[in-house]
Structures are given as C-alpha cells and as structure tokens.
Design a protein around this nucleic acid. Structure first.
Lengths: 195, 195
DNA sequence: CATAACGGTTACCCAAGGGTAACCGGCGCC
DNA sequence: GGCGCCGGTTACCCTTGGGTAACCGTTATG
C-alpha cells in the first residue's frame, strides 16, 4: 500500500521512475502499465499528469537533457583556457554519465525514439551540446565543417560512454575526461584549412 | 501487377526494400504490412522467407553490418602506415555512409529502435569495428582504455555522419575522411600513459 | 455529519499489427 | 491434358497496449 501523494510530488516520482523504465526497456518496450506499476500506482494516474505516453517521454527527455547541459555549462564556466574548458567539459559529462546511467541511456542508447517528435527533441539536445563545443574549434575552417566536427565530438563522448555503461563498469570520470579531452584537443589543434 | 519472382530473388528484393522502410520508420514504426507493400507483395510472402519480423530485422543488420565492415577492411588492406590506414579507413566509412544513407540509419540512427536481440547484433558490429581500430592506438596505455577509446572513435565517425545524413547534405567522403582521420590520428598520438 | 475535493482504482474500449489458415492460378512435366 | 509444385492472395485470429468512463474512500471543512 503506497502512500497517497500530493499531485506535485507524484508527478516528480513518476518522472523519476519513468527514466529507469524507459532506459531499461526502450520507448516501445515499456508500456504505460510498466511505468505505472514501477511507480506503485495505476495507469489512469499517469494520465492525470501527462496527456499521453509521448508527452511523458518528451518531458523526460527535456528534463534529463537540460540537466546534462547545465552540468557541463556550470563546470566549464570558470575555465580560463580552451584546453581547460575542454577537459572540464568532458569530465562533467562523464561524471553525469557515471552518476546516472539511466539518464544517459535514455538520451543516447534508447532503443526506441521512433517517434518523430522524440527524435527531434534529442536532436535538439545534442545540437545544443555541439553548439557549446563548436567555438572551441577555432582553427581556420569553414563553419559547416566546424559544426560537423562538433557533432563528431559529441559522438566521441557518446561512444566512450556507451561502452562503459553497457559493461556496467566502474570508471573514474575525471581520469576519463582528461584522456578524452587530450585526444580531442590535440586532434583539433592538428586540423586546419589544408585538411 | 508485379511479376512473380523466384524465391531467391524475392528474398533479396525484400531485404533491399526493407532496409529503406526500417531506416525511414524505425523498427516499431514500420509494420510488416509496410514492408510487404513496399516490396509489392502481401504479408504472408514475407513469412515464407523470414520466420518473424525480428528475424528479418536481424538478417538486415547482419547483412548491412558485414557490408560496412568489409568495405573498410578492403580499403585499409593495402595501407603501409598507421596514419594511412586511419585515413583510408575513415574515407571508406564515409563513402559507405554517403552511398547508402539508409544502411547507416539502420545501424546507427537512434530512430531505428531495437529489442534486446537487435541491440546485441548491433553491438557486435560496432565491437568488430572497434577491434579493427584498437591496434592503431599503440601508445602505452592499458588495454581496456584502448578499447574504450576505439569505441569512442566509432562514435566520432557516427556523430559526424549522423549530422550529415540528417541534413541530407551532399558531402565529399574522401575530404571528410581526411579531416576526421587527421583529428583522430593527431589525438591518438597526443595521449599517453600520463593522460 | 453532510459534502466537496482529490488521489486513486476497476473495468473496459478499440486500433494496430504480428502471425496464420485456407484458398488460387499458372507453368512445367511426365 | 491432368497433376502437382510454387509463388501469391484474401481474410481472418488474437494479443498488446494506449487511452478512458465511471466509480470509490479518505480527508478536511463548515
């Protein structure tokens, strides 16, 4: 017998629990009943807080995505050099991954964003991340290539994280961030208009 | 009235058409009816060639994945240096992406949703790719980190490609390969046991 | 102590879609 | 020229699951 919760808290709890459920089963793999059960309530309760399954899912993506973005933004705010910013950024990202595997899976490894809207929502997040990265690529190179490379670096971090999360390994985010930042920074310095 | 095809050819045609359908709509978004219609036949015909939807999907992944792997393997076979191999490899990869957007989307787009078996199948492909890359990271670094970075480079290529494919842009795979290979190679040279 | 508000439940509807049983028609082959 | 093989179709079954209508019990408040 779960306690009755006031609306606000119940909504938060549903969001909390839904991240895990969707991350583990994917969008289509998880039914609203699954989410409801995990939250300790029944289906109609979900619909009191969210208009539809898609609505719930989009709320999750927005929530989790913003959390990631702000974590990185905060970490890099005090950086004095591009290199330091790169390192701090990657470290913050890997810390975010290490802290909440489910959140990472929801955004990057989720087995079902077939929904056009969800795909768009995630694209918006990665695009925002890329926008933050792009200015660090200050070599002489045309703007389009710059943004493309920025998306590549997002993918780099994603690829690294995916392997670690899938293996369920413990890892040191700060050490890993240093390693990857080193790779990224040196790589970026090496490319130029002649590439 | 579509012509009647011998079993072998029909099977090939279904695979061809199914790549496009699944790439565009995702696993759950595409129904067997959609695939059948696109192939110009009806549903039961699909089930004469494949046991289930999942069976068809797995066959596709295997098919497309192997095509990608061998394309890269062939391109890098004659390389004389690590740097040349890196460049040739990335170029072959981007050529593969440019040639067949649908194949790329099937394997890498988040929009192509997967169940557990499909996730595993795809993991196998990326892992194989990473295995090919890992030896190029011949710096003094422990084996686990080496493989993790290899997965990162797979992600790097994936991130770059995703943006280009999503934008429907034309791009020069050879030029792009040179650019990304430069980044990767220089990045890898820069990291060491002290990172 | 009636009653309204609110959190929650039971029981259902209905469309979508994976999968199948039964049937059909033309072509090759003794 | 009947016969069987083979590629194909029509029409259906049945589960899953998103979404909802109607109802219930507790608490608070006058």
């Amino acid at each position: 017998m779960n306690t009755r919760l006031p609306a606000g808290e119940r909504r938060e709890q549903i969001l909390d629990v839904a991240v895990q459920v969707f991350a583990r089963k994917g969008y289509h793999g998880a039914s609203m009943n699954d989410v409801a059960e995990a939250a300790g309530v029944t289906k109609p309760v979900l619909y009191q807080h969210f208009d539809s399954k898609q609505d719930l899912y989009l709320a999750l993506i927005e929530d989790v995505g913003q959390r990631m973005i702000t974590a990185i933004a905060k970490a890099t705010a005090g950086a004095t050099s591009g290199k330091a910013m790169t390192e701090l950024g990657f470290q913050a990202y890997f810390r975010w991954v290490a802290q909440d595997h489910d959140a990472f899976l929801l955004l990057f490894a989720t087995q079902a964003n077939r929904d056009a809207a969800a795909t768009l929502a995630i694209k918006k997040i990665t695009s925002e991340a890329a926008s933050a990265i792009a200015p660090l690529i200050d070599v002489e190179i045309d703007h389009e290539k710059q943004r493309t490379l920025a998306h590549g670096l997002v993918g780099l971090a994603e690829g690294v994280s995916r392997r670690l999360v899938e293996r369920g390994e413990d890892f040191d985010p700060d050490e890993l961030g240093r390693l990857v930042a080193n790779l990224a920074w040196a790589g970026l310095r090496a490319i130029g208009p002649d590439s």
